[in-house]
């Protein structure tokens, strides 16, 4: 019997889509083999009705519905996860790859003596030894990592080419169980999260299903108004290459690349971005890639599905117009 535990992360009571995608991926893997069970741990106050009809497969969601878990204090979370692993007898723990899991997973790996495979993608071949893949050397190579310990921890990057939003939830059987309050949460453990400040109304590039990114060729901070307009139209997020951030045109939170964020949107629109390895390293899991660049030999076209050769200042206003037309007709 293989027992998997999926960690469901909430922020401000909303369970992250990346966590739900991870659950659905794990269900898909579990369905390939008999004798597996999947459960989940949700930490913090959250209305569980939001999970109705979005979780595929079957299993128990353990809910640590305590105020103490509202903010993601690492020491309390680490204990809770380690305790729940023991309680359900889990041998494998899955996280979505997020800021929180990148903090918790290495701690848990040491504490539980568990193999940690982070920032990876898994496919069907995973059953054969639990190996997973991750690009290394700025995307020049792809490495396969295999766990050596009986306990394993994965932080998963969703694969844009697999659509989990369509994961079949019909016939799924999910039960919820509220965990009794933990004894240790009254203890003041540090580091302690004092507060979180969410950027209101802005979607994070790492989570958006559509990303419109701009490079140095956008020319100025003002040049990004076009991309903001486009992002608004498409319900996406604005991203940027490093020079754009270094120039102060956009905040670092929007930087995509080796020293920025890794993204896996269904659609990635690269505007006036040359496509150096440090940038491409972070978009390897994107679905459809569109490049707009005035240089037909720009390396971004080597990874793009569609390309338009032209000046962004001329092409983007037209694209915005076309999309408005398209929206009207729908």
């Amino acid at each position: 019997m293989k027992i998997f535990l999926v960690f469901l992360e909430q922020r401000e009571g909303i369970v992250k889509k990346a966590s739900i995608d991870t659950w659905n991926l794990v269900q898909e893997l579990a369905a390939l083999y008999p004798d597996t069970s999947v459960s989940a741990l949700l930490a913090g106050p959250a209305d569980i009705r939001q999970l109705d009809g979005v979780l595929a497969g079957q299993g128990v969601v353990y809910h640590a519905n305590e105020e103490a878990y509202r903010l993601c204090n690492p020491q309390h979370y680490t204990r809770l996860i380690a305790d729940t692993m023991k309680r359900v007898g889990a041998t494998t723990l899955f996280f979505a790859d997020t800021a929180l899991s990148r903090d918790l997973a290495p701690r848990l790996s040491v504490r539980l003596q568990a193999s940690l495979l982070s920032g990876c993608t898994v496919d069907e071949a995973w059953w054969n030894g639990g190996a997973c893949q991750r690009p290394i050397y700025s995307g020049a190579a792809i490495a396969s990592f295999a766990p050596c310990c009986p306990l394993k921890i994965y932080t998963i990057i969703p694969h844009a080419t697999r659509s989990f939003s369509s994961a079949t939830t019909s016939g799924s059987r999910i039960t919820f169980e509220t965990l009794e309050p933990s004894l240790h949460t009254s203890e003041e453990l540090f580091p302690q999260v004092r507060c979180i400040a969410m950027h209101k109304g802005v979607r994070d590039v790492a989570e958006a299903t559509i990303v419109v990114a701009g490079g140095r060729g956008m020319g100025s901070a003002e040049g990004f108004a076009l991309l903001e307009e486009l992002a608004r139209l498409l319900g996406g997020a604005v991203g940027a290459s490093r020079p754009v951030v270094d120039e102060g045109w956009r905040p670092h939170a929007e930087q995509i690349g080796q020293t920025g964020k890794t993204v896996a949107p269904a659609l990635y629109l690269a505007c006036a971005i040359s496509g150096t390895p440090q940038h491409l390293a972070a978009i390897g899991s994107a679905g459809t890639i569109v490049a707009i660049n005035r240089d037909p030999h720009a390396p971004i076209f080597d990874v793009a599905d569609y390309g338009i050769v032209g000046d962004v200042h001329l092409v983007l206003p037209k694209l915005i117009e076309e999309l408005q037309e398209f929206l009207k007709k729908r």
Binding site: L116, S144, C148, V290, D305, K318
Partner: peptide, 28 residues
């Protein structure tokens, strides 16, 4: 001993072929 081993390192093959489009109408 190690927690994790590397079992293979392979070049990342980019098999995409870019379709150049004449205008934004075609792109949409």
């Amino acid at each position: 001993s190690q927690f994790v081993s590397i079992t293979s390192i392979k070049p990342l093959v980019k098999e995409k072929k870019c379709r150049f489009l004449p205008d934004t109408q075609e792109l949409v």
